[in-house]
């Protein structure tokens, strides 16, 4: 008799290996990595989560969400609310932020049912602006002046608190990618593709398009929320203009486009690549250069590789196979 549970796919082996490596470098300080690397790595991993979450709607289903910053900030502020209420631990903040943003995603899905294409994108952008206005006028979470979140300097057994946050974000990234991959390989994921290609034809082929759209907005919202949950702890001071920064929305779109929007691997590659370049540029050149880099890289990819790096690789591998 076979033991199916023991038959691990390469994906899960990789995920496990990355998690173990994460433990090795954070808890056991293997390779003696500088704290700044964790500080920067956290941001890159955060983008892996955001880009993956965006891609569930934007890549699989073809619904471009411009409101990523809104979801991210609501996730961050959900944590602030819990902190202000009873100094909740991060372990509680993350699921709470996720659920709040999942509900937000569900509401957005319902409100924008009839909107497609560019109209949907504008509606999501408007939603982010409305949310920002609400937060600015909400004194409990600091309003326009912002709020301080006090965190301990260290977290056993990780040592530095940033190393702990890095590890948490690493787990969230693995979680987000697993969810996206699972969706992609499921019947639901194939329904998403049908919706992207032609929504009316999908509906007439028996695809419950409304339910699938709501699943996508809810799951995507949840993942964006968990990405934002530790943000306040990471920066220890949160204010609306940084939490709602447009760069989150722009990056969440650009990264899957660069990596390849049709598979789970695309946003991962895009986020690792573009995120790292941005972090390096911030240190070596200037922090204002980020958006310029995104713009240039995006224009380059739209022209040279409209299907992203994954599309390019597939074409290359496919081409070779034909040669044989």
């Amino acid at each position: 008799m076979k033991w199916p549970a023991l038959k691990l796919s390469p994906f899960w082996l990789c995920a496990a290996a990355i998690a173990v490596l994460g433990i090795a470098v954070t808890i056991f300080d293997l390779f003696n990595i500088n704290t700044f690397i964790f500080f920067a790595g956290y941001v890159v991993l955060q983008y892996v989560v955001l880009a993956t979450a965006w891609n569930i709607m934007g890549g699989y289903m073809g619904y471009v969400n411009f409101g990523t910053a809104g979801f991210f900030a609501v996730g961050a502020y959900a944590s602030v609310v819990l902190y202000n209420l009873f100094q909740a631990p991060l372990a509680l903040m993350i699921p709470f932020a996720g659920v709040v943003c999942a509900l937000l995603g569900l509401a957005m899905g319902y409100l924008t049912l009839r909107l497609r294409g560019v109209f949907f994108a504008i509606a999501t952008l408007a939603m982010a602006i409305v949310l920002e206005t609400l937060i600015i006028n909400w004194e409990f979470v600091g309003g326009a002046t912002g709020a301080y979140i006090l965190r301990s300097r260290e977290q056993a057994p990780f040592g530095d608190y940033i190393e702990f946050l890095f590890f948490v974000m690493l787990l969230l990234a693995i979680f987000a990618v697993s969810v996206a991959r699972w969706l992609e390989l499921s019947r639901t994921g194939r329904g998403f593709i049908a919706i992207r290609d032609d929504e009316i034809a999908a509906e007439c082929a028996g695809v419950p398009t409304l339910r699938l759209k709501l699943i996508a907005t809810t799951v995507s919202g949840f993942l964006m929320g968990v990405a934002g949950a530790p943000f306040a702890l990471y920066v220890s001071f949160i204010e609306p203009s940084s939490a709602f920064n447009l760069i989150y929305a722009v990056n969440a779109i650009a990264m899957p486009m660069i990596g390849g929007a049709t598979t789970w691997l695309g946003p991962v590659i895009g986020a690792l690549l573009l995120g790292t370049v941005q972090q390096v540029a911030t240190v070596t050149i200037s922090s204002e250069l980020n958006l310029l880099i995104v713009g240039i890289v995006l224009v380059f990819f739209v022209i040279v590789a409209p299907e992203g790096i994954v599309g390019l690789l597939k074409k290359w591998l496919g081409g070779r196979r034909d040669d044989r």
């Binding site: 019947r187 194939r190 049908a194 290609d197 032609d198 007439c204 695809v207």
Partner: peptide, 22 residues
């Protein structure tokens, strides 16, 4: 449909697969 609406990013068989599965 009068104007064909295929799922363009899928193969012919996969197009049928959507209908069969759903």
């Amino acid at each position: 449909f009068q104007i064909p609406k295929p799922f363009r990013s899928l193969t012919v068989l996969e197009n049928l697969g959507i209908a069969l599965e759903f």
